[in-house]
């Protein structure tokens, strides 16, 4: 009986691994295809199967996309914008979230539900008034125009951090208050150190969303001086279909690698932090 059970468990475990590994391959398959295809020569790209390995591997696509199509500066702009927005969101969300989580003030619940409600408004159409506003502010085709709409935090970010703050026992704070600590000190010395993982999560989510954002940069930027990587890649698509798939794929690979690097760097924090938020 016991051996039967062990065998069954072992069998189940193997089966589970097979399923999980298949799922993992499916998850990264498209990335591998992009990476593989970006090393193919243009004439091989369209004539061989997408999963066939690059037989005559070449770096030409990367050098072309880097030198001829300005991807190096687009990547730099993307990095600049993503870092600035991430930094702003983490700082301002933490401040706002603390107010919502711990302080009593008139209008709090109304305001908080207002934040939640805006998450439900379709964003696409608000871009028209937003663009016209930016024009009035003289911010079209500037980094400020790219950064401003999201740098002060989003309802989602405030919501995420607030939920975490509420799980932190308030005894600590009460003790600090008795010792005469100010609200700012409590936030910086007590809350933030206890919230590193959730802040790392928010940072990652923000970084990825900003990095991948296409539609706002498309509307607000004009010149190569402010162009970001998504717009740069989108601009390479041809009139009806892509005339330069090798360039697009190499650009896509270049755009993805830093993102994956950032994720791998922070992934431990992210998983832990989501666990710690408790989300309850």
């Amino acid at each position: 009986m016991r051996t039967h059970r062990t065998i069954a468990t072992a069998f189940g475990r193997t089966g589970l691994y097979v399923v999980l590994i298949a799922g993992a391959l499916l998850s990264i398959g498209p990335y591998l295809m992009i990476l593989n295809a970006s090393f193919k020569r243009p004439q091989d790209l369209l004539t061989t199967d997408a999963w066939a390995p690059a037989r005559h591997a070449t770096f030409d696509n990367f050098t072309a996309v880097w030198n001829q199509y300005g991807m190096s500066s687009f990547l730099l702009h993307t990095l600049l914008v993503s870092v600035a927005v991430t930094l702003g969101q983490v700082v301002f969300s933490a401040m706002g979230a603390y107010a919502f989580a711990r302080l009593e003030f008139p209008g709090r619940d109304l305001l908080f539900w207002g934040y939640i409600a805006t998450m439900m408004v379709p964003q696409m159409i608000t871009l028209v008034p937003l663009f016209l506003m930016m024009r009035e502010l003289g911010l079209v085709d500037t980094f400020a125009g790219l950064i401003l709409p999201t740098v002060f935090g989003t309802p989602y970010g405030i919501f995420l951090v607030r939920q975490h703050f509420r799980t932190i026992p308030s005894d600590l704070e009460a003790a600090a208050r008795i010792d005469g600590a100010s609200t700012w000190t409590i936030l910086v010395r007590i809350m933030l150190p206890l919230s590193k993982p959730i802040l790392a999560t928010l940072a990652t989510i923000t970084f990825i969303n900003t990095w991948n954002n296409l539609i706002w940069p498309l509307i607000i930027t004009n010149s190569d001086r402010t162009k970001v990587i998504t717009v740069g890649i989108a601009a390479l698509q041809g009139q009806h279909v892509s005339d330069l798939p090798h360039i697009v794929l190499a650009g896509a690979a270049l755009a993805l690698l830093p993102l994956i690097a950032v994720f791998l760097m922070f992934q431990r924090h992210i998983v832990r932090s989501i666990a710690l938020t408790g989300l309850k």
């Binding site: 301002f92 608000t126 028209v128 016209l132 506003m133 002060f152 936030l187």
Partner: peptide, 19 residues
């Protein structure tokens, strides 16, 4: 504490929505 977040919220979310 809410000032920066509110500024962004009102200017870049609420105002366009009203628009």
């Amino acid at each position: 504490l809410l000032t920066p977040s509110l500024l962004g919220f009102v200017l870049f979310l609420v105002a366009p929505i009203i628009g």
